[in-house]
Computed example of a mutant assay.
Amino acid sequence: MPTALVTGAAGFIGSNLSESLLDRGYTVRGIDNFLTGHRHNLDPLEEHDDFSFFEIDIRDAERVADVMEDVDYLFHQAAVPSVPRSVEDPVTTTDGNCTGTATVLDAARRANVDTAVVASSSSVYGSSEELPKVESMTANPESPYALSKYYTEKLAVQFSELYDIDMVALRYFNVFGPRQDPEGEYAAVIPKFINLMQDGERPVIYGDGEQSRDFTYIDNVVEANVLAAEGDASGVAVNVACGDRITVNELVERINKVLGTDLDPVYDDPRPGDVRHSMADLDLVREELDYEPEVEFQDGLQRTIEWLKGE
């Protein structure tokens, strides 16, 4: 079976992807610098004989090159996440996401890796009110994070044109699920709200709550990565989502229903860099990867709540 290198393997997406690859029979090498990843996410991975982990910063060209040797598929998930974080600290975001990506992709092409799949983001579309978001739309990244993700995918596409390596960029839409960190200032909305509400605390919504998102369960993202690696697509950036959307107000209502609570949100000022609405068109990803979302939002929400409750 093939050997895969997963960057950001101790993170939410990277750890779920690594576990799925191991279950599919891959040999997996994981790297992470623990800036935002967690060691406990590696626990189920290290039970597999075919998993090895290296504590490496993706900007360390020499060490990245060493671990890239004899790799068939690269899954580049490592990044400094969060729009608000990037607004407050654009230098760290840009350095990690841009310099880091260039370092990893260069090591991949020098090691003759067959295919690289890189994580991009729906934030590259910006705040245009046109829905659904189609890959042919003009990108308009409105935060340093969004700009770094646009650079990531453009560099991947360019590598596929300049070198003999297949590259696919996946524009993730609001991924959620088990192992996503519910704590901290920059925690994603779904685990953060669940964590607060199961403790009887009211969640804070920035804005009026009518902003909408195409929330995408983690299993769909993992499947898209595998399809991109094992398929024939190259030199493309495609949406990965469910092709639907719900408002943040509705999100609170649905969490209340599953938890059996009746908590009203607290409203605060909108945050700079946040887009108003987001929903993906899935035509291109269906065409390029034969992708279909396997887990719809409500089922994914139920699974995430059960995981956070330790059930």
Rank of each mutant, 00 (worst) to 15 (best):
A139F: 13
Y172A: 06
A116I: 04
Y125L: 02
V175T: 13
A156G: 14
V87L: 09
V104P: 03
A102M: 10
D164I: 06
C98K: 04
D89T: 10
E88T: 12
Q158E: 14
E135S: 05
F173A: 06
I165P: 01
M167H: 02
T103W: 02
G96M: 07
R171F: 09
L147G: 09
E161W: 02
A139H: 10
Y186T: 06
A139C: 07
V104A: 03
Y145I: 11
V71L: 09
L74N: 04
G184D: 04
S122T: 13
V157W: 01
P132I: 01
P81V: 13
E135K: 05
E161T: 10
V175S: 11
L170T: 05
K149F: 11
S128C: 08
A108V: 04
D166G: 15
Y163H: 14
L170Q: 02
K133E: 15
N97L: 13
Y172M: 06
M68A: 13
G126R: 02
F75K: 01
A65Q: 15
R110H: 11
A111R: 05
A146D: 07
Q77P: 06
P144I: 10
S127R: 14
V87K: 04
Y150T: 02
V124E: 01
E135F: 10
A116H: 02
A102C: 11
K149S: 04
P182A: 08
A78N: 07
E161D: 12
L131C: 06
Y73N: 01
V168D: 00
Y150Q: 11
R110I: 04
P178I: 08
I165W: 00
V87H: 03
D164P: 02
E153K: 11
D166Y: 03
E142L: 14
G96W: 00
P84Q: 05
A156E: 00
Y125W: 10
L162Q: 09
D70K: 15
A111E: 12
V71C: 03
V71F: 04
D89N: 15
